[in-house]
Design a protein around this nucleic acid. Structure first.
Lengths: 198, 198
DNA sequence: TTGATTTCCGAACACTGTTCGGTATTTTAT
DNA sequence: ATAAAATACCGAACAGTGTTCGGAAATCAA
């Protein structure tokens, strides 16, 4: 399992390329990422990048995974000791705040489809979704919310996800430059949804 | 206000270009639209397109307005005679269905920011948003839902929009190819949110 | 030290959106 | 009808893109 010096250098070079790419994406948006500019700033020829990634899409994919990890770190900072409902609200707010503060990263993170293809397959651990799912399950167990007929914790989590994801996306596209107290409105929205579950 | 033959031909040519562009967007996604391919299929040289539109972005902008109109037509088919809450639910479902049936169109439609920059400015008439706003106002007047403290019909409408928009976007990106009974889940989600407003 | 593998680059290919100069064509004014 | 002006259109070019290929160094394993 230990890596040779060559392998270590290889991975290091990969990360250098990824870091430059991430920097450029933050600066210019991910749809404007230029591999040639990445190569320039990483001191490679354009062709050399293909020694480390098989395509531009491949770079974006790896990057989107790393960004998911960044989101997870932030969401993990929400205290587990919070009352179940309050915890769900705060998780949602962290999600939206990340989106608004890192528009390009957020959009890249969500541009690629998940590997999970149905409710039967297991939820990937250490994902933001899993975090919210756990919080929802806890709120059900504590009796803070109840499941509608035929609806399980997963469906509730998905609906919450839709709500906060939609709020995020609207802020980045349609409502870019729109002035309003979104922090407050979004908070009420999440609470309203939870209230609908008693 | 009557147009000269030249103006009429000009507008006709514009629409030919837009139609070809729309076709290609449906086929290949709007981020892959090639102006040169549009020119080929519309029997123009690439340069000639610039007699009708000042840039690719301009074409996409006009197209996104036309797509918004298409969405509006579908949402207008939801009977106004429905009970207020049921009407809101169905408006949301039409929105999501349009997104899922026309992924590229939907994404283009939402890729450009709205002209409205704050709640003070007037809502543009004949927009999907206005339609939902009216339905929400009606539901408030009829007493089917109540406004939380400090929240007005607009904020409720925005939250509903976030919910259905998020559900739509998730279906097109993260949950592409994911198998589940989304029609049912989304319906319950909207009803749950409305229930949270009593 | 030889041979194999990895790293890296220059050049090229096939694209892209856009601009510019010039030529027809069509409209407007005289 | 004629001259002038505005519009429509195109070929060629510019600067950029992602990607592939052949070959040359460098590094590793035998």
């Amino acid at each position: 399992m230990t890596q040779s010096p060559r392998q270590k250098r290889h991975e290091k070079s990969q990360q250098v390329i990824l870091d430059v790419a991430a920097k450029l994406i933050v600066e210019n948006g991910y749809e404007n990422l230029s591999l040639r500019e990445v190569a320039r700033q990483a001191d490679y020829s354009p062709a050399a990048l293909y020694e480390y990634f098989k395509s531009k899409e491949d770079i974006l994919f790896v990057l989107s995974e790393q960004i998911g990890d960044q989101m997870l770190v932030l969401m993990n900072e929400v205290p587990a000791s919070l009352p179940p409902l309050e915890r769900i609200v705060q998780l949602g707010q962290v999600y939206i705040r990340f989106a608004v503060s890192n528009p390009s990263k957020f959009q890249l993170m969500n541009s690629l489809p998940s590997k999970r293809k149905s409710l039967d397959e297991p939820v990937s651990a250490n994902s933001p979704y899993k975090l919210v799912l756990n919080a929802v399950s806890a709120a059900i167990k504590s009796g803070d919310i109840k499941r509608p007929k035929g609806i399980h914790a997963e469906e509730i989590t998905y609906s919450l996800w839709a709500l906060i994801h939609g709020a995020s996306m609207l802020r980045l596209t349609n409502l870019r430059d729109f002035q309003a107290d979104f922090e407050k409105i979004d908070q009420v929205a999440i609470k309203t949804f939870l209230k609908g579950l008693e």
